[in-house]
Design a protein around this nucleic acid. Sequence first.
DNA 1: CTCAGTGCTACGGTTTTCATAGCATCGGCA
DNA 2: TGCCGATGCTATGAAAACCGTAGCACTGAG
Lengths: 107, 107
Amino acid sequence: MTPVPARPARGSQTGRPMLAAFDLLGRRWALRILWELRGGPVGFRALQQRCDDVSPTVLNTRLGELREAGLIWQDEAKAHDLTALGRDLQRALKPLQAWSERWAAQT
Amino acid sequence: MTPVPARPARGSQTGRPMLAAFDLLGRRWALRILWELRGGPVGFRALQQRCDDVSPTVLNTRLGELREAGLIWQDEAKAHDLTALGRDLQRALKPLQAWSERWAAQT
DNA sequence: CTCAGTGCTACGGTTTTCATAGCATCGGCA
DNA sequence: TGCCGATGCTATGAAAACCGTAGCACTGAG
């Protein structure tokens, strides 16, 4: 079951957007998949390789969820790509990258 | 096994900080736990309730990972709280909240 | 009309997460 | 002193998620 802002998130009463986002992005490979799509459309097998050979089952499940959530879509050649909303999220995740480098520096 | 920036992340060769962050934050409840700690130290059972009664096993596992990663710590009263690094991450996650509201608005 | 490449699904085994019960400890408070 | 509720957390089996591999259907190049 794909989390969307309206519907209550897994393990939550209220459908608060942030909690739905946590539910969606807190699934394995979800963040990574979005990340690997940052440079334009990618085919299934290429995407799989970029994600360190994630198993196709999970990859396809995540792609389905992200598609249903409106973050990605498939073009006519079946390549997976970010939607405007997905690119928006991408930008929102930018500070996370900066943080991760501070994290690395501190350790 | 807790992901830290130096060590390679789960399912990754390189130990790129961003991938380690994805691994750490892509585990269930991890983001939520950090989020619920935004207002200061919280005890175990209170935190569990705020996280929609997450099972204590997972909560404790996540807390251990986040502690090992240096994002949270325990004060003398055993209450869980963000470290400076954790608060830093908190700030980095701020745009995500804004995004989630745009997401909700669009759906 | 092969043949390599692609998108994806089926299947069974392993890992993660879950729900519940319970232990040990620590204040109040009589 | 002995009880009582609350707290931090662990143990244990069941459910769900995830994984690796094999393979099907299709498409375009040669």
